[in-house]
Design a protein around this nucleic acid. Structure first.
Lengths: 193, 193
DNA sequence: GCAAATTAATGATTTATTCAAG
DNA sequence: CTTGAATAAATCATTAATTTGC
C-alpha cells in the first residue's frame, strides 16, 4: 500500500564479496556528502568512449575524487555493503530510463558506467541491476495501481478501519475510472460494478 | 490530472455562477473558525452510515451547521472559490495518510468524504486532490532532504540554453537474449539483428 | 494594533510518463 | 506502433501567514 521506491532507496542486488552482506564497521558519518564510500578499491575502468554531444555531458562537472587515494590515511570510513547512487547518477539513470533505455546492452552499460563514475563509485553491475530493478518496479507499481483501482471487488480482505466495507451510498454502484474538470465541465468516467 | 467526484447532481452547487471563478465580495472575516463559508446553501446530507469502530468515530463531535440557515441574515460572508479543510478534516486526512492511505479507491473516497462532511463542507474531489497533493509533496520534500544532504557536487549549471539534443546512446543493433550476473561477471548474450 | 504588501502553503488543472492491450 | 488507463510531476491559482509601515 505504501513503499515508494523512488525515495532514494535502491535495493540493489549485491554480489560483492562473494555475495556476503557487509556490516558497518564504523559509526556512519551522517554528514558525509558522498556516501558511496567503501574500502573496496575501484574497479578497473572500462573503455571510455566519449561522445562529444553525449547525454552525459550535461551532468559532467569536474570534481576531485582522488584525494583519498593519494593519502591513504582513510578517515573513519564506512563500509557500504551496497552501491547507492549519487543524486547525479540517479538523475542520469532516470533520464536514460525516461528516454527509453530499458535493457542496456553490454556496450551501453560500459559506457554509462564509465560516464557515471565521474560522479562517484559505480560498477557495471550496478547499472545493470539498476535497470533491471527499475524496470521491474515500475511494472509492479503499475500493477498495484491497476489492482487497487479495478479490484476492490473480490478483495474482501482485512482492511483496517481506514478502508471501509463497501456500502451503497445513495449513488449508482460504480467505480470511477477517471475524471477531470475542463472548461467548466466535469467529465467522469464510470465503470459499473 | 484526473479528479474525483462522487455525485454529479451536487456538483451543480459548484458550477453556480456559470462556473466562473468566484471573487471576494467582502473583506475576509479573519476570525471565523470555520472558514469554509460560502454563499451557497449547504448540500443535502447523504446517508449517514456509521461504523462503531470506524476510524472517523474518534473525530466525530457534534457541531451545529444549521444556524446560518435559520436566520438568513447572512453576515459579511465570503465567497470561497476553493475548499479549505477544517482542522478536524485535516487531522483526519493526515491520520489516514499516516496509516498508509495514499491513493484511496473510489469507495474509500466516498466513505472518507461522507464522514468528513460532518466537520464541514467537503466533496469527493477535495479528498481526491488532497491525497494527490499530499503524497506528491511529501515525496518531493523527502527528495529534497536527500538531495541536500548528499549533494555536494553543486549544480552550478544553469543550462537553459544548452539543451541536450542527443536522443539515445549509440545503440548496437542487436537484441539481448539473456543476461545474468555470476561471480562478479556480467554475462550478456547478444543476438545481432 | 491594523491592514496593505509580500511571501509561503496548498487546492485545483494541465502535462508527460508508464505499462500493456489491440 | 498506436492507444487506453491512470497517474505523478509540473504548473497554475488562491488562500493563509508573515512582514512592514504607519
Amino acid at each position: 500500500m505504501m513503499g515508494y521506491e523512488e525515495d532514494g532507496e535502491f535495493n540493489m542486488v549485491d554480489s560483492s564479496f562473494n555475495g556476503r552482506k557487509l556490516s558497518l564497521l564504523m559509526p556512519r558519518p551522517i554528514t558525509s556528502p558522498n556516501n558511496n564510500t567503501s574500502i573496496i578499491t575501484p574497479t578497473t575502468p572500462f573503455l571510455n568512449h566519449i561522445h562529444a554531444n553525449d547525454f552525459f555531458s550535461q551532468y559532467h562537472h569536474h570534481h576531485d575524487h582522488s584525494r583519498r587515494d593519494q593519502f591513504n590515511v582513510v578517515p573513519p570510513v564506512v563500509v557500504s555493503s551496497r552501491w547507492n547512487p549519487t543524486p547525479e547518477q540517479l538523475r542520469a539513470l532516470e533520464e536514460l530510463y525516461r528516454r527509453g533505455t530499458r535493457t542496456p546492452s553490454a556496450e551501453q552499460i560500459q559506457h554509462i558506467t564509465s560516464q557515471l563514475r565521474k560522479f562517484g563509485k559505480i560498477e557495471g553491475k550496478n547499472v545493470f541491476y539498476w535497470f533491471q530493478n527499475h524496470k521491474a518496479r515500475e511494472r509492479q507499481k503499475r500493477r498495484r495501481q491497476i489492482a487497487s483501482s479495478v479490484a476492490d471487488h473480490g478483495d474482501h480482505h482485512h482492511h483496517d478501519s481506514d478502508t471501509p466495507e463497501k456500502k451503497e451510498l445513495g449513488n449508482t454502484p460504480c467505480i470511477i475510472y477517471s475524471q477531470f474538470m475542463k472548461n467548466d465541465t466535469l467529465s467522469i468516467f464510470l465503470y459499473p460494478l
